[in-house]
Amino acid sequence: MKISKKLPHMYWSYTRGQWMERTSPFTLKPVRPIKLISDKELKDIYLPLAVFIKERYQLSLRRRQHIASMLEESPAPTPFIIGISGSVAAGKSTIAVIFKELLAQLLDQPAIDIIPTDNFLFSNEILEKKGLLEQKGFPESYDTESFIHFLQSIKFGQGEQLIPVYSHASYDIIPNKYQTVRPSDIFIVEGINTLQRVKINESGLAVPDFLDYAIYIDAPEDYIIEWFLQRIESIFLDNQHIPSSYFHQFAGLSVQGVRQLAKQVWEQTNGPNLRQFISPAKYRADLILEKDRNHQIKHISLKKI
């Protein structure tokens, strides 16, 4: 028997219209506008989704408290970790901010922090020594061991952590700069590698083992390519005259020339990475959001289990 590659039996699947019909009877708490999206998109799509995630968070809290009570132990202050994955330029960081703001409102301001997994890329210097600079973004270009150690530390309450900081303007880890990560109620970990099962040692642990809820941002590749070119164009225009920027070296190029270089990067690196490693992991997600060309959500898949 041939099993469908789309695994439809794992998900409740809704078009945009079907989702709005199913969730319109919800009595939802009004929320403040979020500048990143229209009020209609916020109310029709993201607010009901945030309510579902809020319920998962609260169920997780009750479950831990119940188990601790059964064992006559004090419940550990374990954070709820949301992973957001998808292609480069799919809008992961934007959606992370949207859910952060919505959950903060729905849960009356819990501590929520966003962690970009780009912070755990090896520096360009290390990638060059390893011969991996042309494969930046592939699983082997990340310091996965440090990333998993960090996830263990925040998951099991080992206090304040310092992690590196990545800059898209310099296209590199910033030397001697660190992000201070303090204990939070919820962490949103966003990056292309959050659903990939890259094992680093005999423990067999991988990044998805630490996630309480996983989201995948999906779209046709031709849409993503255009978003990627637009993103590179925007970064180039903002940074071409800054000497410390990676894009300063291209200051003599036209915008069209920069877009052509970006297209080559897509064809050589980002496209193969999407097809080989990022997209195949999407069915590990609890929620798959498919976008249209204008970044609006056109299809929603919620895992049944």
Rank of each mutant, 00 (worst) to 15 (best):
F99V: 01
R16M: 05
T15D: 07
K199P: 02
Y216S: 08
G86H: 00
I115H: 04
K6A: 14
H9K: 12
Q230A: 14
I45K: 07
K155V: 03
F26G: 07
N270I: 00
H9F: 14
F138S: 12
I188S: 03
G83L: 08
Q296K: 13
N201L: 01
Q18M: 01
E72Q: 13
Y246N: 11
E290H: 04
D222P: 05
P30A: 08
I225G: 09
S60T: 10
L205R: 12
F52K: 12
Q65M: 10
Q249S: 14
N294W: 14
G271L: 12
Q135D: 10
Q196K: 00
K2C: 01
L121I: 09
E160H: 08
Q249C: 07
R22C: 06
N193E: 01
F247C: 03
I174K: 11
I235C: 05
F26W: 15
A251I: 01
K35F: 06
L71V: 04
E128Y: 04
G271Y: 11
F150S: 06
M1V: 03
Y14F: 15
Q230C: 10
V265W: 02
D118E: 06
A68H: 10
I174N: 00
L7E: 14
E134N: 12
V181K: 15
Q152F: 10
T180I: 15
G86V: 04
I82V: 15
G86Q: 00
V88H: 00
I200N: 07
H248S: 14
P75D: 04
L127D: 10
A68W: 11
A104H: 10
F236C: 03
D39L: 09
P139K: 05
D143G: 08
V51F: 06
F250T: 02
R259V: 06
Q179K: 15
D286Y: 03
K92R: 05
I148T: 09
W227D: 06
S184C: 13
I112V: 12
F138C: 02
R22V: 11
N201H: 04
D292A: 00
S234C: 06
F247I: 04
I95P: 02
W19A: 05
K303V: 02
A251P: 01
P220Y: 01
I225P: 07
M10W: 12
A76Y: 07
T94V: 14
G137R: 05
K282I: 00
H299T: 05
A111Y: 06
A206V: 04
E125T: 13
